[in-house]
């Protein structure tokens, strides 16, 4: 949290307020006074919400959990960019020193058919859970833990899988994409398991089922703009999408049903 003597700024927020899923929603201008520059964006929202509560007004609903960039709960589109202007940074790790005094900040929810607004800045991202449930796992027999080195994985493959696995499932890729496509998310999950021997047995059905679920959930198609990778707080590479395209083609050709 910000120290007591850090520099303070005042901001003009234009925040999306929407009471329910059905409500049409609108922007509300809310001032953010005396914000320490060392505060994170979410802490700034906390300060604003404390004041709103004291004034008997409805606080701004937004999602957050870990506040250290690992859970993927925080969302928000800040001045047009998911997670704000900084590359490789989640909203919870964005600091107010990146803004200047008297700046206007437009804060919107992630917008996509597949991510309906629940309230204000909080959106329903269960479509991602459905995609994972469709194949983003490896089936294992429970039993004794296998010996650590029984299944050798080359270092390059392990690193590759790990890079894809750093996806925190926040949905910024969908929010940034002009088509609201979830291709970066799906491809990160598919490739993470496709390069590992543990993922091999379910490889084909995984990509087919996860893509089917993505399409059924109302996400758009990929135009290879690369906006997803630019917005990703974990900087998941666009390469994942191209590799999944190949993976999908192979699986479509090989399927026997």
């Amino acid at each position: 949290m910000a120290s007591a003597n850090s520099k303070k700024i005042n901001l003009k927020l234009k925040v999306w307020r929407q009471k329910t899923r059905e409500d049409a929603g609108r922007f509300e201008e809310i001032s953010a006074q005396e914000i320490p520059v060392d505060a994170s964006f979410l802490e700034m929202m906390d300060i604003v919400n404390n004041r709103l509560i004291k004034e008997g007004r409805d606080p701004i609903a937004f999602d957050h959990d870990c506040r250290e960039g690992i859970c993927g709960s925080c969302s928000m589109v800040i001045n047009g960019n998911p997670h704000g202007p900084e590359r490789g940074t989640a909203t919870c790790q964005l600091h107010m020193r990146k803004f200047h005094d008297a700046q206007e900040i437009v804060v919107e929810p992630f917008r996509a058919t597949a991510f309906p607004v629940i309230k204000d800045l909080s959106v329903d991202r269960t479509a991602f859970d459905r995609i994972i449930a469709a194949g983003g796992y490896v089936s294992v027999n429970t039993g004794n833990a296998p010996d650590a080195n029984a299944l050798p994985v080359p270092k390059e493959k392990a690193d590759d899988a790990f890079n894809s696995a750093t996806c925190i499932g926040c949905g910024a890729c969908v929010a940034a994409c002009a088509n609201s496509s979830a291709m970066l998310f799906v491809s990160a999950k598919v490739n993470h398991l496709a390069v590992l021997p543990q993922g091999e047995p379910e490889r084909e059905r995984r990509v087919l089922r996860m893509m089917q679920t993505m399409e059924d959930s109302g996400f758009g198609n990929c135009s290879n703009t690369g906006a997803c990778s630019l917005a990703c707080p974990k900087e998941i590479s666009f390469e994942n999408i191209a590799r999944m395209n190949a993976e999908y083609m192979k699986a479509s050709i090989k399927r026997r049903d």
Binding site: K14, G25, F27, V77, N79, G80, N81, P82, P85, R87, V106, E108, R111, A112, T113, A114, A176, N179, S180, S181, G218, F219, G220, A227, L230, A231
Partner: peptide
């Protein structure tokens, strides 16, 4: 159709 409600501001800068 995957984004019926448009953003007030689009992605900009390094994103």
């Amino acid at each position: 159709g995957a984004r019926p409600q448009k953003y007030a501001m689009g992605t900009n800068g390094s994103k």
